[in-house]
Simulated assay, not measured.
Amino acid sequence: MKPWPYPRWIAHRGAGKLAPENTLAAFRLGAAHGYRMFECDVKLSADGVPFLMHDATLNRTTSGHGTGGEQPWRMLSQLDAGRWHSRNYAGEPLASLENVARYCQHNGYFLNIEIKPTPGLETQTGTVVADAAARLWQGHTVPPLLTSFQPEALEAARAAQPQLPRGLLLDSFWKGWLETALTLDCAALVCNHALWDSATVLQAKSAGFRTLSYTVNDDWAARRLLDLGTDGIITDRIDLFSPATE
């Protein structure tokens, strides 16, 4: 297996649902609960700036409307990405990948970047995000883990910055998933937690992959994954699971 310096517990989108997802406020709250690794979604603005957002559109989590990737960063950076969650977070801005990189590096935190392309921009997003990650983490011992549901995005990331660790996200074991992960030279498989059982964990580990799960919000599910010997648990429930137990 490839080297694996990452902690087991990973805070989903910064702090799960307790703060506005994919913002620095969420990262700070996750850190306050003892988390040292965070998952976030990254896509590109119209002018090629990597920024944090899960949805293709701005409507759900910001004061904006329309497709996020069609707006320049100058406009995106002025949106309110906190009020939708609660009044206490009103005025919280969208975060750029550079903002998040600086925060994690200054505090010794680890990052899982899910490459989340605007549809049709898989290759461009994979390339730009990987190049940005390599530049931002240059000289740091532990780089971010790059993951995606889109093999095209991971292939572009591999071609641009092959030294950065990659993980294939899976919501089902579709035909050719194992061969695809091997071809992409992935370090990890990041699966819907229900996909893991003793047989699939053995299959993945025998092929040299670390085994991670999303999104684990129940105690019984976490216990099952720990008993199976999986390597990483991505959770919204930063208030339920203490990473000090790993």
Rank of each mutant, 00 (worst) to 15 (best):
residue 7 P to F: 07
residue 75 M to F: 12
residue 188 A to L: 09
residue 160 A to I: 04
residue 103 Y to M: 04
residue 62 T to C: 07
residue 74 R to Y: 02
residue 126 G to E: 07
residue 75 M to G: 05
residue 214 Y to R: 01
residue 150 Q to P: 00
residue 245 T to L: 14
residue 45 S to T: 00
residue 72 P to R: 09
residue 12 H to Y: 05
residue 50 P to I: 04
residue 193 H to Y: 15
residue 232 G to H: 13
residue 145 L to M: 10
residue 21 E to A: 02
residue 81 A to H: 02
residue 162 P to C: 05
residue 244 A to Y: 10
residue 52 L to C: 03
residue 220 W to C: 10
residue 94 L to A: 11
residue 160 A to N: 07
residue 65 H to K: 14
residue 161 Q to N: 01
residue 219 D to Y: 14
residue 62 T to L: 06
residue 116 K to A: 07
residue 233 I to D: 09
residue 113 I to L: 12
residue 224 R to F: 06
residue 99 N to D: 15
residue 172 S to V: 02
residue 171 D to H: 13
residue 95 A to S: 14
residue 232 G to F: 11
residue 180 T to C: 11
residue 65 H to P: 02
residue 31 A to Y: 03
residue 179 E to N: 12
residue 124 Q to E: 15
residue 187 A to H: 14
residue 53 M to W: 00
residue 102 R to G: 10
residue 39 E to Y: 09
residue 116 K to R: 11
residue 217 N to D: 15
residue 213 S to I: 02
residue 189 L to G: 01
residue 73 W to N: 05
residue 24 L to G: 00
residue 134 A to C: 08
residue 144 P to T: 03
residue 153 A to T: 02
residue 42 V to R: 05
residue 27 F to G: 00
residue 167 G to K: 02
residue 63 S to E: 02
residue 101 A to V: 05
residue 105 Q to R: 15
residue 4 W to Q: 03
residue 28 R to M: 10
residue 21 E to L: 01
residue 185 D to V: 05
residue 159 A to S: 13
residue 192 N to S: 07
residue 43 K to H: 15
residue 80 D to V: 05
residue 140 H to K: 13
residue 81 A to Q: 01
residue 167 G to A: 13
residue 185 D to L: 04
